[in-house]
Design a protein around this nucleic acid. Structure first.
Lengths: 320, 320
DNA sequence: TTGTATGCGTTATCAT
DNA sequence: ATGATAACGCATACAA
């Protein structure tokens, strides 16, 4: 009972503190966890490295670790993917953690099912199909894509392309890819435009390749591109430059990507930020509430960062 | 004693297994850790997110998590930096882990001192000044930079620039930055060349800015650039393109960076790979040996990936 | 081969 | 206000 939960006289308190100082005593986290029933540790399920990890995700991992540290909690990593299922299994089965944050949540997610079954508190990054049933923190991809299309429509664009995340993620019903596609198609119909949607891998070369295809195969080509694929964006910019397509004179370009990444380009790419730090902080705090106050309502945090024009959107060029 | 350490008759084994199945029993990791004295967990000290994290580092974190998982171990994150010292303190002080992997090791590193003091097994990524005193996994930056300079000298280059990691890391005596600089200066002298060394932040814009300075301020400008700064490389390439400098016709460019990153450029950048996966695996296995066989010699793993020319090095242009 | 008791280092609950 | 003691859930050593 070293940690001040008891009424202690000043004298004895002094004495104890002195001994603690001198002997360099530190309580054992393991023993405390066993006795107290809480590990002061959160699990973080990260995407497999076999897929291309993006800077956004790294920043998020760091943000979670730092936010957890701010609340005196540690973070236990659990790589997901076929080969590493056992880690997740250990984490939840052996109760190594008080709660879990799940990255790259799918609309139908087996990990979420397992967590519900085990009754372990958790927060997902991105919503599942049963979004009312658990806490989540998500980015409003649908709203942001809709806004992008609306802006472009207002500027007179009639042919717009969406460069989405990898097809594999769409197939596995990855929320952001799924919702971006859905919102894009609806917005295109609403504004009576011609929309094209393509997937690119999370890598530059794929983004470049897809862009070349958009410019070459489509007749006439789109006058604006919207993308939610951070890594592909680099390739898009490179391909446009190679093709001597000047932004925004010949083509408008908007992206949902981390602000740091958007501003690293020349010109800086307009669009909305993926606020990784804020998402990490929100996730940790939501999880903490689930753990300490299970009776409180679930947290549903839908972040909608402002759209920042940075000069990469302009009026549609006179038709070809 | 569920885990096969005891001689059990087949009959009772069956019975136990059946009950385990039916009741969904799972041993508690915490209780086991307390009784057995080992947590089956490794700590991983990551750089602060306030600095620009690079893809290399993210891949390394993932690689460590996956390598640890392959040996039935989990990974506990510890963000380093002023504000988060408490996390590290908890990790080692309260013995939440069996061992620690330290990223971004400095030549004089307080965390290493602490770990030695505590007698906790650990492996550093990069060497400290007392490299014989502990296990480490490092990349041979000195050797790779030397090879780059030697190659360029053989091609007739006489003015070569090194774009290093941020000045801040040099000031704090960060090994890779330190050794790259040292090796560069020695190689330049050995081949009787004119060398220029500059630091760039870990971001594109800084790389571009530094490159513009090299091309503009130096008269005559260098005919070759060597860099160990992954993020700055993007800026270097962009600045060269803007300045209409054609690689390798006008200038040779070599980089030590992750292969994935080097190949994402057009043209692909020649140089040496930063083998993050291999480093992660080596670090985990070295740490595992320290934990299980403390009497065995320390592991000193110096990785020296092959230099891969990819067409960005050519003969020195006829002098201006 | 099998049952039983004690210890791991805390927290929490009793009496005092 | 303080001291003693029982859990916490498992491993291990010792009896049986």
């Amino acid at each position: 009972m070293l940690s001040g939960k008891r009424q202690v006289s000043e004298a004895i308190r002094e004495r104890v503190m002195r001994v603690v100082e001198e002997s360099g005593y530190r309580p054992s986290a393991t023993a405390r966890a066993l006795a107290h029933g809480s590990t002061r540790t959160f699990g973080l399920v990260i995407p497999p490295t076999s897929e291309h990890l993006v800077v956004e995700q790294l920043r998020f991992v760091g943000a979670v670790a730092e936010a957890a540290a701010a609340h005196d909690h540690d973070v236990l990593l659990s790589p997901s993917g076929e080969a590493h299922e056992s880690t997740f299994d250990r984490m939840v089965g052996e109760r190594r953690v008080d709660g879990v944050i799940v990255m790259e949540t799918m609309l139908h997610d087996s990990r979420v099912a397992r967590l519900i079954e085990e009754g372990l508190p958790f927060v997902t990054i991105g919503r599942t199909g049963a979004e009312e049933a658990h806490s989540w923190v998500d980015l409003d991809y649908a709203g942001l894509v809709t806004e992008a299309v609306t802006r472009l429509a207002a500027l007179g664009h009639e042919r717009i392309a969406l460069i989405n995340r990898p097809q594999r993620l769409l197939d596995r019903e990855y929320g952001p890819a799924f919702r971006a596609l859905d919102a894009f198609e609806k917005a295109v119909v609403a504004h009576d435009l011609r929309g094209t949607t393509v997937c690119a891998e999370d890598e530059e070369e794929s983004g470049a390749e897809v862009t070349r295809r958009l410019l070459g195969a489509l007749v006439p080509p789109p006058t604006a591109i919207v993308t939610v694929n951070e890594r592909a964006l680099d390739g898009v910019v490179a391909a446009l430059r190679s093709a001597r397509v000047v932004v925004p004179r010949d083509l408008s370009l908007l992206a949902v990507t981390s602000e740091e990444h958007a501003r690293a380009h020349e010109p800086q790419i307009g669009g909305a930020d993926v606020p990784t730090t804020e998402m990490g902080r929100n996730a940790v705090e939501a999880l903490l509430r689930r753990v300490t106050h299970p009776e409180e309502p679930l947290a549903h945090v839908l972040l909608s960062p402002p759209f920042l024009p940075r000069g990469t959107e302009g009026p549609a060029p006179a038709s070809a």
